[in-house]
Design a protein around this nucleic acid. Structure first.
Lengths: 165, 165
DNA sequence: CTTGCAACTATGATTTTCATAGCCAACATA
DNA sequence: TATGTTGGCTATGAAAATCATAGTTGCAAG
C-alpha cells in the first residue's frame, strides 16, 4: 500500500484498510493486545513466517502504530509495543472478536476469552458497552481470562514452535 | 482460507480474519452497507478488478454473509445483499471508520460521512454510543449524510468507470 | 570453541493479484 | 436485419506476494 492509495480517497474505512487490511497485520495486533511483545512469540502464535512478521512489523512501525524498543543492549534485542495510535485500534479488535464469537463458532465451543469489567466487577460480555453495568468499555477497565482450552492451544503453539527450531 | 484454518483455532479474531481478513472483502462490505448492491457499482467504488470482486462475492456468499438476489428474470441480473450475519458485521466497519477518521486524516479533511442518531435527532459521532444522547448505536437508528467532497469523489468514480467501458 | 538464544534475512517454488481484453444474453434503436 | 448497449461476469499472461525451508548475526555461557 503506498501513500497515494491512502490519500486517494476520503473514505476512512479504505484508509484504515490500506494500513491494516491484511490478515497477518491484524493477527500481529491481536498478539500485541495480548501482550506478546517479542518477535518469536508473535511468530509462534500467529503461525506466520518470519518474513511475514518482519515485513508487517516494519510497516506498522512506519505507520506509527507500533514502536520497536530495545530491551537488551548486548546482544541487541527488541520488543514491539503499541503506540497511542495502535492502542486506539482496540475497538476494531473487540468488534472482530464479538462477530467471530457470535458467527464463527458452534455453541459448544465457548468463549476464548472472558472479560471482567473492573469498574463493576462483573462480566463485560461481547459488546462495546458492559453487559452488566451498561457503561462503555475501555481497555484499561478490562481483565482478561483465557478459557482453559484456548490457553492450552496457545501453550501448545509455543511448545511446537520451540521444538521446531 | 480453508475450513480447517478456521477450526484450527479458538481465537474469534483469527476466525473472523479467515473470512474477512482481506482488503477487497472489507471494501465490498462497506459498499453493501452503503447500499451499492450491484456488481458494477461495487467494482466502480472499490476499484477492484472484476475477478477480485467476483471471487470475494463468491466466498462471502459461501460463508453466508452475502446473498445473491435475482432482480430481473430476462436478462438475468443479480444484486448482492447482506444476510443477518453480514449485517452483524456493521460494528467492525464502524470501528474501522472511527479509527480511520481519527488517525488517518489531516484535520482539514473533515468527516466523509456524518451520522444523525434518529433516536435523538442529533449527531451520532464516531463512537459505539451516540455522542449526543449516550445510547448505544444500531444501524437502523442512523441516517447518513455524505460530505460533499466525498459525494463528488464517488460520483466521479462512477463516471470514470462508465467512461472506461 | 562449541552450544544456545533471539531476531531476523535469503532463496527458489508456488500462488495471488493486476491490467487488459473479451464474452454472452437480452433487449433497444436505426 | 444490423448495430449498439447494458450488466455480470471469464480469460490471459505478466508482475508481485507468499510459502516452506534454511541460514546468518551477535553475543554470552559453559
Amino acid at each position: 500500500m503506498d501513500k497515494e492509495s491512502v490519500l486517494d480517497t476520503l473514505c476512512p474505512v479504505a484508509r484504515s484498510e490500506a494500513v491494516v487490511g491484511d490478515r497477518w497485520t491484524v493477527l500481529i495486533l491481536r498478539e500485541l493486545f495480548m501482550r506478546s511483545y517479542r518477535f518469536e512469540e508473535i511468530q509462534a502464535q500467529t503461525g506466520g513466517t518470519p518474513q511475514m512478521i518482519a515485513s508487517r512489523l516494519k510497516s506498522l512501525e512506519a505507520e506509527g502504530i507500533v514502536e520497536r524498543r530495545r530491551y537488551s543492549e548486548r546482544p541487541p534485542r527488541y520488543e514491539y509495543h503499541l503506540t497511542e495510535k495502535g492502542e486506539a485500534f482496540y475497538p476494531v479488535i473487540l468488534a472482530l472478536r464479538a462477530w467471530g464469537e457470535t458467527w464463527m463458532k458452534s455453541p459448544d465451543e465457548g468463549r476464548a476469552v472472558q472479560y471482567t469489567h473492573l469498574t463493576c466487577g462483573k462480566p463485560a460480555g461481547l459488546g462495546p458497552v458492559c453487559e452488566s453495568c451498561g457503561k462503555p468499555i475501555s481497555r484499561e477497565d478490562l481483565s482478561a481470562a483465557l478459557n482453559s482450552a484456548y490457553q492450552r492451544e496457545r501453550d501448545e503453539r509455543w511448545e511446537a514452535f520451540k521444538r521446531s527450531r
